[in-house]
Simulated assay, not measured.
Amino acid sequence: MATGSSTGNRTVAVRPVAGHIGAEITGVDLAEDLDESVVAVIREAVLRWKVVFFRDQWLDHAAHVAFARRFGEPVVLGRRGSASPVDFPEVETTADRLELGGRFGMEHEEWLQRRRHTLLRGWHCDHGARVDPPAATILRAETVPPYGGDTTWSNLAAAYAGLSAPVRAFADGLRAEHRLGVGYQPRPGDDSYLRHLLDHQVASVHPLVRVHPHSGERVLYVNGYYVEQIVDVSRPESAALLEMFLDQAVRPEYTVRFRWEPGSVAFWDNRATIHLAPSDNAHLGFPRVMHRVMLHGEVPVGVDGRPSEPVTGTEVRRW
């Protein structure tokens, strides 16, 4: 059932699209100077449904940043690729990803293959190895393939709630190290990407279950991209536990899959979701150009009140 509110001559409606996660919001033009009541509807929908979708939104970079500022402080990344707009340091263009393989002496496909050591490797939250990962991400589509290229999100609060009570209690006391470059398979001989990872290492210890700072929900804070191991247990125990928790985190009933169109916008809570970038479109040869703005986030806090701790390269709010 759709919910929402009226503003002027327009009714803003929130229509859930899956049982645990995802809603489409209609009746709003994100390029406008939004009324605070509309901002409140969007904020509430993001908290409730974890990711919300908008169609037919024709934003330029300035409007994208202005919309993001209604919900927090945009992140300014210290390093971006040449595809990102020079005059808008808050905006990162996903076409930059295609440059990375070439920068390190590998074709893009080899670069991806060496980074993804398991089928769950692609699931991640944005910049999860930092001690203060972004609170939210707003991604808009400029050019998309005629088919393929969908993105999938999973609700980590629902995944936690779906665990049995004894396992929830066990998970509440665990912490895990999140590290950039987990599982990367080095190239024989000179490997410039490995040197890059070592020179720019980022790692933090996060609670395995974090408490959402606004909703109070407990979130199974795990992903396949950054998690190195669960601390204070043996490596074999850690591997078995991570497999169990990751399988739980991405169960189909906790997910939603979105078909992008030019002008589509997705706005998600990076504290309570992980997402999976598409891997079914590279062989098609169609361009896929997306732009994202992330919002500064808090240091995660566990059920016991302990915050995350930096290991290396994770000074708070330095990007």
Rank of each mutant, 00 (worst) to 15 (best):
Y193M: 11
S84P: 05
F88T: 15
W268D: 02
R70L: 14
G224F: 01
P146I: 04
G22S: 03
M294K: 09
F170S: 11
A141H: 00
A203C: 14
E177I: 13
G101W: 06
R210S: 15
G19I: 02
R306H: 10
A66Q: 15
E228N: 15
P207F: 12
L47N: 02
R114H: 14
F245E: 01
A31K: 11
M290F: 06
L276N: 07
L47A: 07
Q113T: 13
Y147F: 12
Y221M: 07
Y160G: 02
W268T: 02
S234D: 14
W260S: 04
R318C: 07
L139K: 00
H296N: 10
V41Q: 00
L180E: 08
R271T: 07
H296T: 12
T118M: 06
V75W: 03
N270A: 06
E261V: 09
S264P: 08
F245D: 00
S37T: 04
P134L: 03
E44G: 01
W319S: 13
A18T: 04
P236Y: 10
N9E: 09
L284C: 03
P310E: 10
D29P: 02
H178F: 15
A23T: 02
E92I: 12
Y184C: 08
V65I: 12
N281C: 12
T152M: 02
L112V: 15
L220P: 00
G27V: 10
D29M: 04
V311G: 11
V38E: 01
N223Y: 03
E73Y: 02
T143R: 05
V17T: 10
D96Q: 11
D96I: 06
T273I: 05
V46R: 10
V250M: 09
V91A: 14
G162V: 08
M1E: 08
A282D: 15
G105A: 10
V311H: 11
R317T: 12
R210W: 09
M244W: 05
D29C: 04
F245G: 01
S154E: 00
E36M: 05
R179S: 14
L120F: 12
E298K: 04
T273R: 02
V256L: 00
S82W: 03
E309S: 13
I25W: 00
S234L: 14
F53H: 12
V265G: 03
I42D: 00
D60S: 08
V233Q: 02
V299G: 01
D150H: 04
A277E: 10
G78M: 08
G4C: 06
M244D: 04
D35I: 00
V17L: 09
R292W: 03
L119W: 05
Y226A: 14
W58H: 15
H296Y: 06
H127N: 14
A13T: 14
E315D: 13
R80M: 06
F286E: 12
A203Q: 02
A68L: 08
A169M: 09
H283A: 15
V316D: 07
R114K: 12
R103P: 06
S279M: 09
